[in-house]
């Protein structure tokens, strides 16, 4: 079966510093996969390589069997790759609804239209608003992003990614910096993600990882240490030693 996302011997170096080393990785339809590892393991770099923000030094990236290694970020988005950022990358001076409308317009190929008003396309605005309501953001739709709580801004990140109707969704620490009361909301939203899309999540909150992921890949110093179900990974003594900081004896 063709994977929705695949990397083959993906590597990235900055001079002598190797940040990603021969990463082989696959995501199938409907996958709920977590990428974990200590700080500096190269998790965000891997996401940036997959999305095209960084060019790999070696290796290949395939989306639905098609090699996209040398294509632009925009081309990868068109092939079904959506992402959120570890640090919010939103249009802070625009309203929540505008953020999503702009994304829906881009996805539908209407964002280059010059001779009609952006919000006169009721179908596009309605699609964006429905998505916001689904993510419990309806009441914030007409507020500027910078005016809403940080936890809700994280939800706007997810809303923008979902507005692209991705086949593969990469969530870079979606609950980072979010108070625990609001992180439950993010978990609820993640639980309701369309079942047919593949989701890869980077997260430090192990409780969230355990509740969400069906499989886990552990990355250490840019290389894959192990991969398996949450139970398998947690039982692996190397993971406890490297990731959880416990020393394995015997």
């Amino acid at each position: 079966m063709t994977s929705l996302l695949e990397t083959r011997q993906l590597s990235k170096s900055f001079g002598a510093l190797v940040v990603t080393s021969d990463v082989d990785f696959r995501l199938e339809t409907g996958a709920r996969h977590a990428l974990i590892g200590p700080n500096g393991a190269g998790k965000t770099t891997l996401i940036n390589l997959i999305t095209g923000r960084l060019q790999p030094s070696r290796g290949n990236i395939l989306i639905a069997g098609e090699d996209v290694t040398s294509t632009s970020q925009a081309a990868r988005v068109k092939r079904g790759l959506g992402r959120t950022f570890q640090i919010n990358m939103l249009f802070r001076e625009l309203t929540v609804l505008e953020n999503v409308v702009m994304t829906v317009s881009e996805h539908r190929g209407r964002a280059g239209d010059m001779f009609r008003y952006a919000f006169s396309r009721r179908d596009i605005v309605a699609e964006a608003y429905e998505l916001l309501e689904r993510l419990r953001l309806g009441e914030d739709a007409l507020r500027k992003v910078r005016e809403i709580a940080y936890g809700r801004q994280r939800l706007v990140e997810i809303a923008i990614a979902l507005a692209l109707k991705p086949k593969v969704l990469l969530l870079d620490e979606p609950a980072a910096g979010v108070p625990s009361a609001e992180s439950q909301l993010i978990l609820d939203v993640m639980a309701e993600l369309p079942p047919d899309i593949a989701v890869l999540i980077i997260e430090h909150d192990m409780d969230l990882v355990m509740r969400f992921a069906q499989r886990i890949t552990v990355l250490v110093q840019g290389a894959v240490l192990t991969e398996g179900t949450p139970a398998e990974v947690m039982a692996d003594p190397r993971v406890r030693e490297v990731y959880l900081g416990e020393h394995h004896h015997g």
């Binding site: 999305t51 923000r53 970020q73 925009a74 081309a75 990868r76 988005v77 068109k78 992402r83 950022f85 990358m89 939103l90 249009f91 802070r92 001076e93 625009l94 505008e98 409308v101 702009m102 994304t103 317009s105 881009e106 996805h107 209407r110 964002a111 280059g112 239209d113 010059m114 001779f115 009609r116 008003y117 952006a118 919000f119 396309r121 923008i160 507005a163 692209l164």
Partner: peptide, 27 residues
Amino acid sequence: LLVHSPFGRSLTGVRENLVRMHAIGAP
């Protein structure tokens, strides 16, 4: 008309956050 068109709004997007514009697939 231009600045309130989808094209104009996407220009505002470019001004506001270039990284995000790339991430939503804008040329």
